[in-house]
Amino acid sequence: MSTTETLPRVESRFGGSATWMIVPALVLLIVFFALPYLTIITMSLREASTRAVYGDGFTLAHYTTALSDPYIWGILGRTIMVGITVTVLALLLGYPVAYHLANSRSRWTSLLYIFVLSPLLVGLVVRTFAWMIILSNNGVANQVLKALGLIDFPLQLMNNTLGVTIALTHVFLPFIILPLLGNLQAISPDIAMASRSLGASRLRTFLKVTLPLSLPGIQAGTILVFVLSISAYVTPAMLGGTGGRTMSVLVVQYLVDNFRWPAGAALAIIMAAVAVIFVSLYLRVTARAMRRLP
């Protein structure tokens, strides 16, 4: 029997059992994603108790209380604004770096890679402590501004959203550079050369060719940074104070400090639902823009 005659049997044999290959992935999703969320949802619906983690019975009171509280809405809005601001800043700072890395042939490119990855090589608590030293009233930033004669009194760079935004931008910058870098490296240089040969300037080539083709990398990187920013806890807890408190800090406060697990779980579900809404809307807008690409 020839080889060509045996191929269909081999393909059908593997095709029949191919569904078993997804079982490990399904188990991981169920155990580490679905079950934790179901547990949190169940916890958010339980009655509050002063003697145990939760009481008997189920209720929607935690959701109605949270959704009718202006203080929680204010923190939720602040969290979303911090996420959007960090995402925009990371994109503005990261795109030029990714573009340079994708097109550079210099011997120093590997060193720049190290600088890009350096925030990931240091623990998050250590990085946040470093920013506390820089942004405190007697920190490096205020001392430099005083030495230059730009200020007479220290600027409040901590215990507010400004310090949180600066630190989170530094922490999550690699998470937007790396997806952009992979996307930009996948764009054929012949396309830009064809645009230049037809008379387009470098700026016009970038705006009409390179930037639209890099939209998938922009989409992936910005979603990743946004989700990480709104869910960050250590940096807002250490740098935010009361003026820069985010939903993650509030949820931990409910769970650990106040021992209000059902109410804290409800806040976590509300935050997750808002994040899903924002990401879904963003995906629709960016997907529509990418469908217009040639």
Results as ranks from 00 to 15, higher is better:
residue 169 T to Y: 08
residue 5 E to L: 15
residue 12 S to M: 06
residue 145 L to T: 14
residue 141 A to V: 13
residue 186 A to C: 01
residue 277 I to S: 11
residue 26 L to N: 06
residue 230 I to E: 03
residue 60 L to G: 12
residue 143 Q to E: 15
residue 217 G to Y: 04
residue 58 F to D: 05
residue 148 L to E: 03
residue 28 L to F: 15
residue 84 I to T: 09
residue 272 A to K: 06
residue 198 L to Q: 14
residue 249 V to K: 01
residue 69 D to K: 15
residue 212 P to F: 04
residue 80 I to E: 00
residue 275 A to T: 15
residue 205 T to I: 03
residue 214 S to G: 04
residue 128 T to K: 01
residue 159 N to M: 07
residue 287 A to I: 07
residue 105 R to A: 06
residue 276 V to Y: 15
residue 21 M to Q: 07
residue 247 M to E: 03
residue 158 M to H: 09
residue 191 I to Y: 01
residue 261 W to S: 02
residue 221 G to H: 04
residue 86 V to W: 03
residue 46 R to A: 08
residue 163 G to D: 09
residue 276 V to K: 10
residue 89 L to N: 04
residue 30 I to S: 14
residue 192 A to C: 07
residue 50 T to D: 08
residue 62 H to Q: 11
residue 83 G to E: 03
residue 235 T to S: 05
residue 167 A to Y: 11
residue 237 A to N: 06
residue 230 I to Q: 08
residue 135 L to K: 10
residue 20 W to T: 14
residue 83 G to T: 09
residue 248 S to Q: 11
residue 258 N to Q: 12
residue 261 W to V: 06
residue 184 L to E: 01
residue 261 W to C: 10
residue 65 T to D: 10
residue 113 Y to N: 10
residue 77 G to K: 01
residue 8 P to H: 10
residue 50 T to L: 10
residue 207 L to Q: 10
residue 189 P to V: 10
residue 143 Q to C: 06
residue 127 R to Q: 07
residue 52 A to T: 08
residue 265 A to R: 14
residue 71 Y to L: 00
residue 282 Y to S: 08
residue 181 L to C: 07
residue 233 Y to T: 03
residue 227 V to T: 15
residue 201 S to W: 10
residue 72 I to D: 05
residue 189 P to M: 04
residue 50 T to Y: 09
residue 169 T to M: 11
residue 156 Q to I: 05
residue 192 A to T: 02
residue 4 T to E: 11
residue 284 R to G: 11
residue 251 V to Y: 05
residue 17 S to W: 12
residue 51 R to W: 07
residue 23 V to Q: 12
residue 194 A to F: 03
residue 14 F to P: 00
residue 110 S to M: 05
residue 195 S to T: 00
residue 85 T to C: 13
residue 196 R to K: 15
residue 150 L to H: 04
residue 83 G to C: 13
residue 210 T to D: 00
residue 246 T to Q: 00
residue 222 T to Q: 12
residue 230 I to T: 15
residue 31 V to N: 12
residue 79 T to M: 04
residue 157 L to T: 12
residue 130 A to S: 14
residue 99 Y to K: 00
residue 262 P to Q: 10
residue 156 Q to H: 06
residue 265 A to T: 15
residue 248 S to P: 08
residue 147 A to E: 05
residue 31 V to A: 14
residue 214 S to Y: 07
residue 5 E to P: 01
residue 108 W to E: 13
residue 68 S to C: 08
residue 117 L to A: 13
residue 220 A to R: 15
residue 142 N to S: 14
residue 152 D to C: 02
residue 125 V to S: 03
residue 15 G to H: 13
residue 193 M to F: 04
residue 239 L to N: 00
residue 239 L to H: 00
residue 91 L to P: 13
residue 267 L to G: 01
residue 251 V to I: 15
residue 76 L to M: 09
residue 16 G to Y: 07
residue 92 L to I: 14
residue 42 T to S: 13
residue 102 A to Q: 05
residue 215 L to C: 00
residue 100 H to I: 05
residue 9 R to Q: 13
